[in-house]
Simulated scan of single mutants.
Amino acid sequence: MMNKRKPSEARERDLQLALTRIQRGRSHTGETKITIAAVAREAGVSTALIHNHYPHIAEAIREAQGRSSRIQRDLKAQDLSTQRDKNRVLRQEIKELRNKVASLASINEVLLAENTALKEKHNVFNMIDLAPKQHDNSYK
C-alpha cells in the first residue's frame, strides 16, 4: 500500500486555510484558540511538520496570537537600547560624582590641616600668661 504525500504547496495551502478557519470561528474540529497545535489538528498534520517545514506558517500563527518573534525581538531590542541609554547616563553621573568626591576629599584634607594649625595657635595663646602685672605703687 503506497502512502501518497501531498505536494508542499498543497500542504501549505491547507495550513493557511486551517489558520483562516480558526480565526473566523469556522473550524471543522471545533478549535477556537489560535495555536500551532490547533492549526495542526485542523489541517490534520503534526506540529513538528509546521515547525520544521513551514516556519513562515508558524510565524503567521504567532503573529495572529500577538507573539510574533519579530515583534518580540524588536521590542527587546528597543528595550535594550533604552536600558543602554539609561546605563550611559548613570555611568556619566557616577563619573561626575567620583570627581566631586575626590574634590571634596582634597578640600577636606586642606581644612583638616588648617584646623590643626589653628588648634596649635590656640594652644600657644593659652600658654601665654595674660594675667595683669602688678604695678609699682610707689608713684602715689
Rank of each mutant, 00 (worst) to 15 (best):
K121N: 03
S103A: 15
N87P: 02
A77W: 05
E114T: 06
T82Q: 12
I128R: 11
K133P: 04
D129R: 09
Q83L: 12
L111P: 01
K86D: 00
I128W: 12
R84L: 14
N115E: 04
Q83G: 03
S138F: 10
S103C: 01
N137D: 12
S106G: 02
E96V: 11
L112N: 14
D129M: 08
P132Q: 03
A131L: 05
L90H: 08
V110D: 12
V89S: 02
V110M: 14
A131N: 10
K86V: 06
D85Y: 13
D79Q: 13
Q83A: 11
N108L: 14
N99C: 00
E114S: 02
N137H: 09
L104R: 06
D74W: 00
L97C: 07
T116P: 01
A105G: 04
K86M: 09
L75E: 12
N123M: 14
L118S: 03
A77G: 03
A105M: 13
H135C: 01
K86I: 10
V124F: 01
N99M: 11
E93S: 10
A77K: 07
R88L: 09
R98Y: 15
L111G: 03
R84P: 02
Q134S: 00
D129I: 03
K76A: 01
N126I: 04
E109V: 13
S106W: 13
L130Q: 12
K100M: 02
K121V: 04
I128F: 10
Q134R: 06
L118Q: 11
D79M: 05
I94M: 14
E109D: 13
I128G: 08
I107Y: 10
S103P: 01
K119D: 05
D136A: 05
N123V: 11
N87S: 13
E120G: 08
L112V: 12
K100R: 14
E109R: 13
T116H: 01
M127I: 00
K95Y: 15
